[in-house]
Amino acid sequence: MPFRAAVITFPGSNCDRDMAVAIEKIGGTSPLRVWHGDADLPEKLDFIALPGGFSYGDYLRSGAMAANSPIMRSVIRAAERGVPVLGVCNGFQVLTESQLLPGALLRNAQQTFLCRTVDLTVENAQSLFTSRYEQGETIAIPVAHHDGNYFADSATLDRLEGDGRVAFRYADDCNGSQRRIAGILNAAGNVLGMMPHPERAIESAHGGVDGRRLFASAIEALVEA
């Protein structure tokens, strides 16, 4: 059966097209485009992506208003059923604000917008999203954020580490994130939030292809399931 994905667009999203292009290039099927104000997701989805951007202009807190959009109730229900959900950058912020993932994304420690390619260490190569990477491998993925400083209390951080839920870690401290965390999984392993942009690393002409394997990992696992 064809891979069936959806990309959610919020007011202020600016990476939704990039995400859709990445999914289509690697999965072979154009994803459905879903507006934040829709009450329900399309039926029988295999994959949901929350893209980067500045939803609602980052008013209140980044991702806070988007987390209360009508569509997020359906996204939460889908995640609870086991549907894979990927949140990138602003999408990661939305996932924490909707409590699908623990912690919060604070203002970068430098108080400046960060836009460059960074090195990440693959901390968990056994997840739905990372099976095509090698454990401990270093990959290069772009970042572009102002509020990417991951914060959680010590007990939560210890639990994430102990349960293998840290998916990616910055090789160097780039934004102040505690324990250099760049991406985390939920307890079930079907929700991944990460600040770096894998959808911007799928073409060598754009500077690198290390993001391709994230999408390929998920698509391969879902097609074989």
Rank of each mutant, 00 (worst) to 15 (best):
Ser177Phe: 01
Tyr170Glu: 12
Val166Ser: 06
Gln126Tyr: 12
Arg116Ala: 10
Thr130Asn: 04
Val166Lys: 06
Asp153His: 15
Arg169Asn: 02
Ala109Phe: 02
Arg116Met: 11
Gln99Trp: 13
Ala152Arg: 01
Arg132Ile: 00
Ser127Gln: 10
Asp158Gln: 13
His145Tyr: 05
Gln93Tyr: 13
Gly176Ser: 10
Gly162Glu: 09
Asp158Ile: 05
Gln178Gly: 06
Gln111Val: 07
Pro102Ala: 05
Arg180Ile: 02
Asn124Gln: 14
Glu161Leu: 10
Glu80Phe: 08
Phe129Glu: 09
Glu97Asp: 09
Cys174Lys: 12
Glu80Pro: 09
Val88Ile: 15
Gln111Thr: 06
Asp163Asn: 12
Phe168Asn: 01
Leu100Met: 15
Asp153Asn: 15
Thr138Gly: 07
Ser177Thr: 00
Arg179Asp: 13
His146Leu: 10
Ala155Trp: 04
Glu97Trp: 03
Val118Phe: 00
Leu128Tyr: 09
Ser177Pro: 01
Cys89Ser: 00
Ser127Leu: 11
Gly82Thr: 06
Ser127Glu: 10
Leu160Phe: 04
Asn175Gln: 08
Phe92Met: 00
Ala171Met: 04
Tyr170Arg: 08
Thr138Gln: 13
Phe113Trp: 10
Val85Phe: 02
Arg180Leu: 11
His146Lys: 12
Leu86Asp: 08
Ile139Ala: 01
Ala79Gly: 14
Pro84Val: 07
Thr156Arg: 02
Phe151Cys: 09
Val166Glu: 05
Val122Ser: 06
Asp119Trp: 04
Asp163His: 11
Val166Asn: 03
His146Trp: 07
Leu95Val: 02
Ser131Tyr: 06
Glu97Arg: 10
Arg81Glu: 13
Ala167Val: 06
Ala104Gln: 12
Gln135Cys: 05
Arg81His: 12
Ala109Arg: 11
Phe168Ala: 00
Val94Trp: 00
Phe129Val: 14
Gly103Asn: 03
Ala79Lys: 08
Asn149Phe: 04
Ala79Asp: 14
Phe151Val: 07
Ala155Leu: 13
Asp119Tyr: 08
